[in-house]
Each structure stands twice: as structure tokens, then as C-alpha cells.
Design a protein around this nucleic acid. Structure first.
Lengths: 270, 270
DNA sequence: CTTGACCCTCCCACCGGGGGACGGTGCACA
DNA sequence: TGTGCACCGTCCCCCGGTGGGAGGGTCAAG
């Protein structure tokens, strides 16, 4: 019996490169069965082939090495399963975004520029039931769902004075992290859990309507922004969204209507 | 009229980060409409919002910046369309691989280790019709399809003496590039185009059968490799595949049978 | 004119992997 | 018992696309 499989032999058996095996060792993912203390040579055994293949598969699924390590060191099969399925869900979400990007790209490249309906609107100050937080762009969708549910629960029984809405700091989009506020205008805004009354200041808004799902709402933002600029206005402050018709109102995405509004001010005429 | 939109304003309008806009400028993807020669400040116009959004979408589809640049500078819409669809096809291929990796991962994690049938087999030397080339791992699938078609055409009319096969250098898998040979055993091997007679030397092979599509054939290789090691043999030379039943024989992937064989030699007993 | 927000360039870090330099080791064969 | 050569070790730099931050100039409102 030799001291085991050399790294090169093991690379042949697993279809991994020698460099990659060394990296996995360094990362603690796959420690050689033995290491010659004199030469530093790594020696593997045939029992290490299956774990190497699991790592290979997880990497094919773009799982970060750190997470692969977490899976390998987890003894409990259920916890491991949970880690894997959560990663697969992430892949699924990404796939959705990819599909949406394809559709949106096709629309962008189509030359027909239909009219964009924009209205300027002076909104008075009003006090609403709101949840506000500092959120990063990756988490904002989950945060929104959660906050809206809590808001609905807290505002149940209070007279509704209009559709719900949100206010999103521009930093959320430009640096990926910013303050987000979701609200529901109700009579006598309650204080309950994260929900608290909030007074939205009066603003002048340039408003247009986005139809359907939000995957390509940035295009509508861009078109609204272009309109604003071309009408000698300037953007000033966080964007406002009003969920006139959303998934809680109609199951059909094509029925959804989101008003988006950018606070603007008139540039002093030259 | 001001000199245009500052990079920060433009970042707000497009939901891109300032850093990213600078990078796109540097890469020649989106040159600001004007640059103040004194300060170096970049100024954009509202007409640049749509191209910025196209770039954004292409990047969401993981298209490399260089290719995005190629698309943007291409005037001809058909060529542009071709570039985009070819990228989408790449995404589709990757998606297939991802799906296959998920299935294979599940199989790897299932604890039931069914028996692996391996036979040792002394293969005599024989002369076959073959195509051989130095191929990189990324191209090997396309190369294989192409070469097999040419081989079938050249060997048509010659009496077939067995199923087709291939021989793959280990370097193909370990460093991603290696010599590949596909062959068909026929009477009187012809010389035609890339096809030439080739004499495969006699070898001792450890052979097992892989069932179905090849996405997870590396697992079978690993299991065969483990068997070889555990039987005090050592791998020696390029791997052999014999396509006993393939897509040209049966449209159903679960009927496919690929014999894989590793040249082995017996380690001198201690 | 000051102040603070904005913009500039430049360098470093990240991820997972490859390329290559440079020197030490294993092993088969002479 | 040497000798040659393929192998293995570590180390550093490269890729792509992005973020973080330093250090310094610029714009515009008060």
C-alpha cells in the first residue's frame, strides 16, 4: 500500500484540477487524508472521491466556497438539506430575474416609443401609518412583503383613505442601501410593533403609471426621469410609489398599476 | 440650460451606481455627452438614459462588457440580434447544466450506494477509422458531434465491426485541454478529410457502464476510479469510452449506454 | 467667501480560478 | 548509486465586474 493518492492522481479521478484541489484544501473544504510532514505532499484516499464530487456539484451551482464548507461540516442532514434548498431557491429567483431581463431587453430594443403619460401633482402633507427602515437592495423585496403584511394587520379596522404606498431613498438604487418607508393612509394611524404614524411632507411630484410586474420598473423610472429633465425640472428627494392595484388586489399581473412619482422642482429659468 | 446631467443625477435616473457609470465610460460603453476639460466632470443627457438601460439589461444577463460594447457599436440590427440570441443560447446551455447538476447532486447525497459492476478486460490492438485533435474542454461537445458526423459519413459503406468510441487524454479534464480521438471500428478504415486509420494499442481496461446522459458521467468515472484504487490497480493513460447505445441509436436518453474504461496496471505487491 | 456636497483619479479587496516562476521530491532506470 | 524528469510545494500576478476608501479639486447655495 502506498501512502495514498497523490494530488495529481486524485485530480484525474475527480476531474478537478490540481490547483483547485489545493485551493479546496486551503479553504478547509477537502483536507487530504495525510500530508507528508517532510515534503508537504498531499495524499488523498479513494474515500475522498465522493465528497470531492459533492463539492464539484455545489460549485457548478455557483455556491460560494464558504457555504460549501458550511454544508460539508454540517452533520445534521436536515440542516444540510435546508442550506441546499435555500441556495436552489436563490438560483430560482435569479432565473426569474434573468427571464424578466430578456423580456425587458426586447422591449427596450423595440423602436416604437409609445407616449408616456406624466402629470405634475402637488401633494399636500398627510399623516399615515408607516414602517420605515434602512434596507439593502438585496433584501428590499422580502422586507417589503414583510412590512406590508405587518402594516395591513396593524391597520385592520381603521378606515382606509387610499391605496398603500412607499418612499425609497435614491441611495437604495445608487449605492444599494437606503431608507425605505412603506405606508397605508388610514384614519387615526396606529402605533403597533414597527408601525407608527408618520407625516409625509407636502411635495410636488411628477407622476406616471407603471403597468404590470416590477421587474422592469427601472425603465419606467428612466422614462419618467427623461421627461422630468426635458421639461426643465430637476429631481429632488426620494421616489414615491403608490400601489393603485397590486397582487393583493388582483391576481393577474397585467392588471397591476403602480404610480411612480419623483419629487421635482423647477429649475430657475436661464 | 445647464451643461447636462451630472454623473450623480444620471445615476439616480438610471439606477446605476456612479462607479459603474465611470467604468462604463472607461470601457467605451457609454461616453458622457460632454466632459468639462478643466475639471474632468462627466455630463450626460436624458437621451443617454435608454442606452444606459440597455447596458444594464445586458449586464443583468451576465454579458461581458466587451460583448456589450460590440452590440452597442453594431449598427446593423440583424447582427446585433444575432449577438444577443447567441448569448441567450449560452445562457440556455448553462441552465441545462445547472439543472443536471441539481439532479446529480441529489443522487450523490442519496446514501444508497448500489453495486458498481466493473470488469477487467484485456483489449487487443486494432486499427480503426479515427479523427484526432487537440481540443479544449469547452469545445469538446461541439467537436465530438462534428467529428462523429464526419466519421459516419466517411465510414459509410464499410462493414462495421462494433460500436464507436473515443479516447480522452486526462489533461482534458485536469487542465481543460487535451488530445481527443473518436473512432469507429470498420473493415478497411478509409482516409478521407480528417478521417484516417489509427492503430489503438492493446491495453488492460477496467470497464464499467454509464447509463443515460453524460452530464454526470464524472461521477461514474469517480466510482470506477475508486474501484480501481481499491483493487490495488493504478490508472495509466487516457480514458476510453465506447458508445454502446447513444442518441443515434435510441432517442430515449435512459436507454443510452456508455462503457467507460480506464487503462490500469497492477501495482507491484508490497 | 465659506461650507458641504459633489466629482475626480488612484489603489486595494473580493471571488474562484489560471499562468507561470522557482525550488524541492519521488521514483524508475541506468 | 547516481541521474533525469515528472511531479509537488509555495508565492505572486492575472482575469472580470464591482465595492471601499484615500486624497484632492470643484460646484453652488447660503
Amino acid at each position: 500500500m502506498r501512502s495514498g493518492l497523490s494530488i495529481g492522481e486524485f485530480a484525474q479521478l475527480t476531474h478537478l484540477s490540481v490547483r483547485t484541489l489545493r485551493r479546496y484544501h486551503e479553504a478547509g473544504l477537502l483536507t487530504p487524508a495525510s500530508i507528508d510532514p517532510a515534503s508537504g505532499y498531499r495524499y488523498y484516499t479513494s474515500q475522498q472521491i465522493p465528497p470531492a464530487q459533492v463539492i464539484h456539484r455545489l460549485r457548478q451551482l455557483d455556491m460560494p466556497l464558504a457555504e460549501v464548507g458550511r454544508i460539508l461540516t454540517t452533520e445534521d442532514p436536515e440542516t444540510r438539506e435546508a442550506l441546499i434548498t435555500s441556495h436552489l431557491q436563490r438560483l430560482e429567483v435569479e432565473l426569474d430575474r434573468t427571464r424578466a431581463a430578456v423580456v425587458s431587453l426586447r422591449q427596450l430594443l423595440r423602436p416604437d416609443v409609445e407616449q408616456l403619460d406624466v402629470r405634475l401633482c402637488s401633494l399636500p402633507a398627510r399623516t399615515v401609518a408607516a414602517i420605515s427602515d434602512l434596507v439593502s437592495l438585496d433584501d428590499v423585496l422580502a422586507w417589503y412583503d414583510d412590512a406590508m403584511a405587518e402594516l395591513d394587520a396593524a391597520a385592520a379596522g381603521h378606515k382606509r383613505l387610499g391605496p398603500p404606498g412607499g418612499r425609497y431613498d435614491n441611495e437604495l438604487f445608487t449605492i444599494g442601501r437606503g431608507r425605505v418607508l412603506v405606508y397605508r393612509p388610514v384614519a387615526d394611524p396606529p402605533t403597533l410593533g414597527r408601525v407608527a404614524p408618520e407625516t409625509l411632507p407636502a411635495t410636488e411630484l411628477a407622476i406616471t403609471v407603471h403597468h404590470g410586474v416590477h421587474h422592469d420598473i427601472d425603465v419606467t423610472y428612466g422614462r419618467l426621469g427623461a421627461w422630468v429633465v426635458e421639461h426643465a425640472l430637476a429631481v429632488d428627494g426620494p421616489v414615491h410609489e403608490t400601489y393603485v392595484c397590486g397582487p393583493r388586489d388582483d391576481p393577474e399581473p397585467q392588471a397591476w398599476r403602480t404610480e411612480i412619482g419623483w419629487p421635482v422642482f423647477r429649475l430657475s429659468p436661464a
